[in-house]
Design a protein around this nucleic acid. Structure first.
Length: 184
DNA sequence: CTTTCGATGATCT
DNA sequence: GATCATCGAAAGG
C-alpha cells in the first residue's frame, strides 16, 4: 500500500484510490467514503467547455484543491488530478467523521453524526472549506491526507445529481459505510 | 419509508 | 434567461 496518492493519473483511478484515505482540513475531517470523477471530455464536468474564472483551479497542478459554489448555497471540494492543465478532478462526496467531531458539529448546527459529512455540501461546511481554499496544495497545511490502515472494499456506480453523462460509472464508495450520500 | 419543492446566487449562453 | 456536481423541510404512502 502506498503512502501517498499519485494525483497525476486519470480522475477515475484517483477517485477509486482515494476511498479509505483520511482527509483533514486544519486537523478536522475523516475517512473518505464517497468520491466522483470528472474529466475534460465529460459533459457533466465544469471543465467540459474549457477554462473559465470559476474552474481555473481545475486546470492547475494535480494535487491541489478546486472549490466551487453549488446552487448558490453550498461549497463543494474537489481534488485536482491528471496531468497539469488536463481539467480533471475528484469530487469528495462523503466522509466518515473521525477527527474534530465537536468542531464539525458546531459548524453544522449540532447535527447527528450521520449528517455531519454525508454529501458534498455537508463535507465542505463541516471541514470549514470555502472559496479561499481554491487552488491550495493538498500535501501541506491546512490540508492533510493519510493512507488507509487496511485495504478497503469499494463499489462503483453512476454519479449523483447530474443530468448529462449520468450513465458513466464514475462514483466510488466505501462498501459498508454508514455515511454515503446515497445507497449503493 | 419516499418524493417533491423552495432557497439562493454565481456562472454561462 | 436558464442552468445548476445540493440541502433540508414538508408532504404523501
Amino acid at each position: 500500500m502506498s503512502t501517498s496518492i499519485d494525483f497525476v493519473q486519470s480522475p477515475v483511478v484517483v477517485a477509486r484510490a482515494l476511498i479509505g484515505w483520511t482527509l483533514l482540513v486544519n486537523g478536522v475531517g475523516g475517512v473518505i467514503a464517497e468520491t466522483e470523477a470528472y474529466d475534460m471530455d465529460d459533459e457533466a464536468s465544469h471543465s467540459f467547455r474549457g477554462m473559465t474564472a470559476r474552474n481555473a483551479a481545475m486546470f492547475g497542478e494535480p494535487g491541489t484543491a478546486y472549490v466551487y459554489r453549488s446552487y448558490g448555497l453550498h461549497w463543494c471540494l474537489n481534488l485536482v488530478c491528471g496531468p497539469a492543465g488536463h481539467g480533471a478532478a475528484v469530487l469528495v462526496r462523503a466522509l466518515e467523521p473521525t477527527e474534530g467531531i465537536d468542531t464539525m458539529r458546531q459548524r453544522r448546527g449540532m447535527q447527528p453524526l450521520r449528517l455531519l459529512t454525508t454529501g458534498p455540501g455537508r463535507v465542505a461546511q463541516a471541514l470549514g472549506v470555502d472559496r479561499s481554499f481554491d487552488g491550495l496544495p493538498l500535501d501541506r497545511p491546512p490540508f492533510a491526507l493519510r493512507p488507509p490502515r487496511a485495504v478497503c472494499p469499494v463499489s462503483v456506480g453512476a454519479r449523483v445529481g447530474i443530468t448529462k453523462a449520468a450513465e458513466r460509472p464514475w462514483r466510488f464508495a466505501l462498501i459498508g459505510s454508514a455515511h454515503l450520500s446515497r445507497r449503493l
